[in-house]
């Protein structure tokens, strides 16, 4: 019951943060609120027993991504111009999508059910075998770097690709800025 209470409280704070993000015009505030959202979600993840994920979310979601967004803000603009379109169609889209997702959850197993299909499959096997086979206390580490290390290899490939993409996109930024009357820029401005 206490867990439920903590869950609901954190959730209400998350929704308040999300609504603040929707309504705020100052992009600096939006980015800060996104950091707050990440920290709150890290707290909720601790309540859900996922301490490793909470750690990563706090470091990556509230740390690195906030820094990246702030550096983007300094290179672009700081104020959002209010949209001219009516919010009716987006609201309709969101309601329909949400209703479809909620309909999909109706035949899911209950929260915390120990006999749910997710708990009895290969995960139970990992939990049972890792003390003999690998012997590292943290099972998440065991699976991440042991049983499923190819996932991490793929992740490294994705991060490398993204890094190359970012470098290609923003390399030469300063050079182009110094002489703005460039050929490629002349016709738009």
């Amino acid at each position: 019951m206490v867990e439920m209470f903590v869950d609901i409280t954190l959730f209400v704070m998350l929704v308040a943060t999300a609504i603040a993000i929707v309504r705020m015009r100052q992009l600096f505030g939006v980015v800060m609120m996104a950091g707050v959202f990440s920290l709150l979600s890290a707290m909720l993840l601790v309540a859900l027993d996922a301490v490793d994920v909470a750690f990563t979310e706090a470091a990556v979601g509230a740390g690195i991504s906030t820094v990246l967004m702030l550096s983007t803000l300094t290179l672009t603009s700081r104020i959002e111009i209010p949209a001219t379109r009516s919010p009716l169609i987006p609201l309709l889209v969101v309601t329909v999508t949400g209703a479809a997702i909620i309909y999909g959850t109706l035949d899911m197993p209950s929260f915390g059910d120990p006999n749910a299909p997710a708990q009895v499959g290969v995960a139970a096997q990992y939990l049972a075998q890792s003390p003999e086979e690998i012997g590292i206390p943290n099972v998440v580490t065991v699976i991440l770097a042991g049983y499923r290390s190819f996932d991490t290899l793929g992740e490294v490939a994705v991060v490398f690709t993204a890094g190359v993409g970012v470098l290609m996109l923003i390399s030469g930024l300063r050079r182009r800025r110094r002489k703005p009357d460039n050929e490629s820029r002349g016709k738009t401005s």
Partner: peptide, 13 residues
């Protein structure tokens, strides 16, 4: 269950 934790760790990065 530790398996979803591992998958989400990858997904965050």
């Amino acid at each position: 269950n530790p398996l979803p934790h591992v998958l989400i760790l990858t997904a965050i990065v």
